[in-house]
């Protein structure tokens, strides 16, 4: 096993964990899950900073894959899916996940300059991107047991966060006050 191949696998697993954390923190931002030790601003800023960290690890994962001559994957295959002869489908899914991630990161960096609906629509595809990344890992991974355990754990975490998201009432719906409708104000 050459070191590049080990690096590819390791950074792949780490990227998945990091992107899972990012996704959960994104949900936390939306729902205002915060406490005095984890204030709102910290959650928001961590979400953004960890996503950039994830990109770094993903970058290494991709670079080691391409540079490693053991499997024929070229730079063009990083952005154009299903062109490899090696595990066409699974590698292709990784490419798709990467493309989606590029869209999310770039639109977020230029967020102030694009219509809010565009940003929001593309940001929603991050769920899809994460799911595709999980499947990519399962299909292309050669450490079957570790990959499966990790995929299962990460999926459980994200699914849990998603369920909690839907169970948390929207801030605006909180019955903060109630108002008497009928004019039962009597003398």
């Amino acid at each position: 096993m050459n070191p590049l191949w080990l690096a590819t696998r390791a950074t792949g697993e780490i990227s998945l964990v990091l992107f899972t954390v990012v996704t959960i923190m994104g949900i936390a931002t939306t729902k205002g899950w915060a406490s005095s030790r984890w204030p709102e601003s910290v959650v928001t800023l961590l979400h953004r900073n960890i996503s950039l960290l994830s990109v770094v690890f993903l970058g290494v994962h991709i670079a080691t894959t391409v540079i490693d001559g053991y499997v024929p994957i070229g730079w063009l295959d990083v952005v154009i899916p299903f062109q490899t002869t090696y595990k066409t489908l699974w590698v292709g899914l990784g490419t798709i996940a990467f493309d989606l991630m590029l869209a999310v990161i770039i639109t977020s960096l230029i967020r102030r300059r694009i219509p809010p609906t565009l940003w929001k629509g593309i940001h929603w595809t991050s769920y899809l991107m994460w799911a595709v990344a999980v499947v990519h890992g399962l299909g292309v991974g050669t450490d079957q047991l570790l990959t499966r355990i990790l995929a299962a754990a990460m999926t459980a975490l994200v699914l849990g966060a998603v369920v909690a998201r839907f169970l948390t009432p929207h801030r605006q719906d909180d019955p903060v006050v109630s108002v008497t409708t009928r004019t039962e104000i009597r003398r």
Binding site: P39, E40, T44
Partner: peptide, 21 residues
């Protein structure tokens, strides 16, 4: 504005939150 309150945490010199956030 949806009352997240992030701003008040990062700029308390200028921003405070009302009772509804």
């Amino acid at each position: 504005c949806d009352g997240f309150g992030t701003c008040a945490q990062l700029l308390p010199e200028r921003i405070i939150l009302d009772e509804w956030g």
